[in-house]
């Protein structure tokens, strides 16, 4: 792997509350290479979105980075001053959010929102920024971009709005885009188009993507590698094909088994017993052991590190074949 574009090491995020400190991300480490698409899956509350928010420095207070580091092209960007971090957002790390119906300001034309983003980050005249905005709208597949640029968000469909959001995230040509559930709020028929668009743009512009989703199908179709999150930790990370074909962590295994196969009908879909623990009740040792069908005594007391297991890396004591 070439030098990573983004390096996350032992990233820990905590929320101080009245009843003690909640650890929402616990020593999360991964890297993204230039141009790579890293998928991140997990249940709601596993810490996927939080990872994205922590990287771009937009944790909702009182959440804070309590440990570890985030490096962008080698330089640390956690705990940067607010103004320095602002210059990174949009310019070097773009972001795409879940619901395109609410991520655009309803009171401004999309052209205004595009040009203000472009001119915030790039030294351009209003006319140049407008030309660039039209080119980006064209690139994300908005028909008649030169005319539609002066339309308001409510004049676009949901899928089109997500295309506009993508244009907004990419218009200053960041090297990395964090896409947080970019298709979850869309119709199934639109989802595939948006994913295809994202994939094409990432390839054409050499943009790396952190693709956060709970949809394993989207990951399988799009990502180069996948990180599986559970209770604020990475359970397994590795090339998508390997993780799907031969998952090394029992949680990943359960996750894969719960995807309905296309070839044959099942009487009943496999499911993992129980539910993910709440943040204030994460068990000692392996966070997954109460639900794990293969748990042994050691799992209760010893926290597994992320270590190579076959073609992937897994945080499981049993996975080291």
């Amino acid at each position: 792997m070439s030098a990573p574009l983004l390096g996350v090491a032992d990233l820990t995020v905590e929320f101080p509350t009245r009843r003690g400190i909640l650890r929402a991300l616990d020593a999360v480490s991964f890297a993204i290479a230039p141009g790579e698409i890293l998928g991140m899956v997990g249940e709601s509350g596993a810490g996927k979105s939080l990872t994205g928010a922590a990287i771009i420095g937009l944790l909702a207070p009182p959440g804070r980075i309590a440990g570890g580091e985030v490096r962008l092209e080698g330089a640390r960007i956690d705990h940067l001053p607010a103004e320095a971090m602002r210059r990174i957002r949009g310019r070097r790390i773009g972001a795409i959010f879940q619901d395109p119906l609410t991520t655009l300001n309803p009171l401004y034309t999309i052209g205004r929102q595009l040009t203000e983003t472009i001119r915030t980050h790039l030294p351009m005249s209003a006319a140049e920024a407008r030309t660039r905005a039209i080119r980006w709208l064209d690139e994300v597949g908005i028909p008649a971009a030169a005319r539609r640029i002066d339309a308001y968000p409510h004049e676009f469909s949901g899928g089109q709005r997500q295309r506009v959001v993508i244009a907004l995230a990419l218009c200053a040509e960041p090297r990395l885009v964090i896409a947080d559930e970019p298709t979850t709020a869309l119709d199934v028929s639109i989802q595939a188009q948006i994913i295809a668009l994202l994939k094409r743009l990432a390839r054409e512009h050499g943009t790396a993507v952190l693709l956060i989703t709970h949809d394993m199908g989207v990951i399988a179709e799009t990502a180069d590698r996948v990180a599986v999150m559970y209770a604020g930790r990475i359970a397994e990370i590795g090339p998508v094909a390997e993780v799907i074909r031969a998952p090394a962590h029992p949680y990943t295994e359960g996750l894969m088994a719960s995807i309905p196969p296309l070839e044959h009908r099942l009487e009943r879909l496999a499911q993992i017993e129980g539910a993910m623990p709440r943040l204030n009740a994460i068990p000692d040792g392996c966070a997954f052991h109460p639900r794990c069908p293969r748990a042994i005594d050691r799992c209760r007391g010893e926290r597994p590190a992320l270590t190579p297991a076959g073609a992937t890396m897994a945080a499981c004591l049993l996975a080291h074949a």
Binding site: G90, A95, F97, N105, P106, E116, T120
Partner: peptide, 15 residues
């Protein structure tokens, strides 16, 4: 969400 997104776009606090 649109304010969060505006922050994610790196707009100035004043804007």
């Amino acid at each position: 969400d649109y304010i969060k997104f505006a922050r994610a776009r790196g707009l100035r606090a004043r804007t």
